[in-house]
Amino acid sequence: MKALIVIDYTVDFVVGKLPVGKPGVEIETRILEIVEQFANNGDDIVMAVDLHEEGDAYHPETKLFPPHNIRGTEGRKLYGKLEDWYAANERLVYWMDKKRYSAFCGTDLKQRLRERNIVEIHLVGVCTDICVLHTAVDGYNKGFRMIIHEDAVASFNPLGHEWAIGHFEKVLGARIANKGRGTDE
């Protein structure tokens, strides 16, 4: 059994308060294709979405990044066509708020996946070298097989993106899927 985890593909992370920018915009169509493929196959889909509270001086990211993905703001909505797809297919998705980089940290994600006999997770979203990376490290440590869709992850740091892709494959043993390389799922 497998599950797709869409990580932080929100307005704030693509074009808003902490934007990946053009690389994030460019993966929109591919993320939507993968989401639709998982939905059509009846596989689990998780939207793991960063959540911050306005004025939270105690969150560690407050010292590192400008305010982003604040509860109740437009910036926390899914980006572009993914928001429309989600609005029409909400019943097919597990929406999961997360407060740290990893989708596993402080959430019920591991339990939810284990209850469904999920052994393989597919990761897409942003940022390759932050939240996708930390989720992948935790997924590895929890014993999940991983597929990283290289053509559906992006970062505002091109060097960090490339480093993370190599780390996923060489250190975490993840398979790198990329439609352009003929390794699409």
Rank of each mutant, 00 (worst) to 15 (best):
110 K>D: 13
173 G>R: 14
100 R>N: 07
118 I>L: 06
6 V>P: 06
2 K>Q: 13
75 G>Q: 10
114 R>Q: 13
54 E>Q: 10
179 K>N: 02
49 V>P: 04
112 R>V: 01
24 G>D: 05
59 H>K: 06
89 N>P: 03
112 R>A: 04
2 K>W: 00
49 V>D: 01
44 D>L: 15
101 Y>G: 04
72 G>I: 05
108 D>I: 08
83 E>T: 06
116 R>T: 03
171 V>E: 15
138 D>T: 01
121 I>E: 02
81 K>M: 07
133 L>G: 00
82 L>Q: 12
87 A>T: 12
81 K>Q: 13
116 R>Y: 01
13 F>I: 05
15 V>T: 15
144 F>Y: 14
152 A>G: 08
42 G>Y: 11
30 R>F: 01
52 H>C: 03
78 L>A: 10
123 L>W: 06
83 E>G: 04
149 H>R: 06
130 I>D: 03
105 C>H: 13
32 L>V: 15
159 L>W: 10
90 E>P: 04
123 L>E: 04
141 N>P: 00
167 H>M: 06
45 I>R: 14
108 D>R: 13
20 V>H: 07
49 V>R: 12
90 E>W: 11
94 Y>E: 13
170 K>R: 15
133 L>C: 06
6 V>M: 05
37 Q>A: 14
32 L>M: 09
147 I>K: 13
38 F>Y: 15
95 W>E: 08
123 L>K: 14
42 G>T: 10
41 N>E: 15
47 M>D: 05
46 V>A: 05
25 V>T: 15
8 D>I: 03
61 E>F: 07
42 G>K: 12
133 L>V: 01
166 G>W: 08
75 G>R: 14
102 S>N: 05
28 E>I: 02
146 M>E: 02
145 R>M: 03
163 W>K: 14
91 R>H: 12
8 D>Q: 07
150 E>F: 00
138 D>K: 07
88 A>E: 11
75 G>I: 11
110 K>W: 01
174 A>Y: 03
11 V>S: 00
35 V>Y: 04
86 Y>D: 10
26 E>V: 05
92 L>P: 03
74 E>S: 10
113 L>G: 05
10 T>G: 04
183 T>R: 12
12 D>T: 11
145 R>E: 08
